[in-house]
Simulated scan of single mutants.
Amino acid sequence: MVLSRVQQVVLLRLRIGHNRLNHHMATKLKLVPSPLCSCGKNQTAEHILQACPYHNALRDTTWPEETALQKKLYGPKEDLERTARFALQSGLTI
């Protein structure tokens, strides 16, 4: 079975960095005043998927074991589904 259209769009946006996270919206599009996340770090896909303390609980339930960013964005279908689900459940607009 293929990923849904929504899942595909979310993954593509996370992969290429052309998304609605603050880093892109501030540095490229000048639509928000700051590239920073609420935690004070640049709000990039890598930050959200790997390190943001505001998403630790969701990250821990989505990936019980430490998972490399490469696997989250380019891994097998199961990992891609997890990544898309995490992004959608995070409450962030990707």
Rank of each mutant, 00 (worst) to 15 (best):
L92M: 02
R59H: 11
S4W: 10
S34V: 06
M25F: 03
K28M: 02
L73D: 01
Q89E: 13
C52E: 11
Y74A: 09
I94Q: 13
S90K: 01
Q70K: 12
K77H: 06
Y54A: 10
C39K: 13
A84R: 01
K41C: 12
A45E: 07
Q70V: 10
V32G: 01
Y74G: 00
A84P: 09
S38K: 12
T93N: 13
P76M: 10
H55L: 13
L3W: 05
N42K: 14
E81L: 07
A26R: 01
T93S: 14
Q8A: 04
Q8H: 06
L31R: 07
Q50Y: 00
V6L: 09
K41F: 10
W63I: 14
E46S: 14
G75C: 03
I16P: 05
T27I: 11
A87V: 00
A87F: 00
N19S: 12
V9M: 13
N19D: 08
T67Y: 00
H18L: 06
I48P: 11
L69M: 10
D79H: 13
V6D: 10
L14P: 10
K41L: 13
L49A: 02
C39W: 09
T27A: 05
Q8K: 11
T61Y: 05
R82I: 07
W63A: 05
L14D: 01
A84Y: 01
A45Y: 01
R13D: 05
I94V: 15
V32E: 01
E78R: 07
V6A: 07
C39M: 13
K28S: 12
L31A: 03
T67Q: 07
L73Y: 04
L21Q: 09
R5L: 12
T44D: 14
C39E: 14
V32R: 00
H18A: 12
K41I: 09
N19C: 14
Q89A: 09
N56G: 02
A51E: 15
T61V: 15
V6I: 02
G40V: 15
L69T: 08
T61S: 15
P35T: 12
V9C: 11
T27P: 03
T83S: 06
K72N: 05
L80F: 03
N56I: 00
K30T: 03
Q7G: 01
T62K: 07
R13I: 02
E81W: 03
G40I: 15
T44G: 13
R5I: 09
T62H: 03
P64I: 11
G17I: 00
V10A: 05
H47L: 09
L80S: 00
E65P: 05
L31W: 12
L14A: 03
R15L: 06
V6Y: 05
S34R: 00
N42D: 15
D60M: 09
K41Y: 12
N19A: 09
V32P: 07
D60L: 13
L11T: 04
W63M: 12
C39G: 12
A87G: 00
C52F: 04
L92I: 02
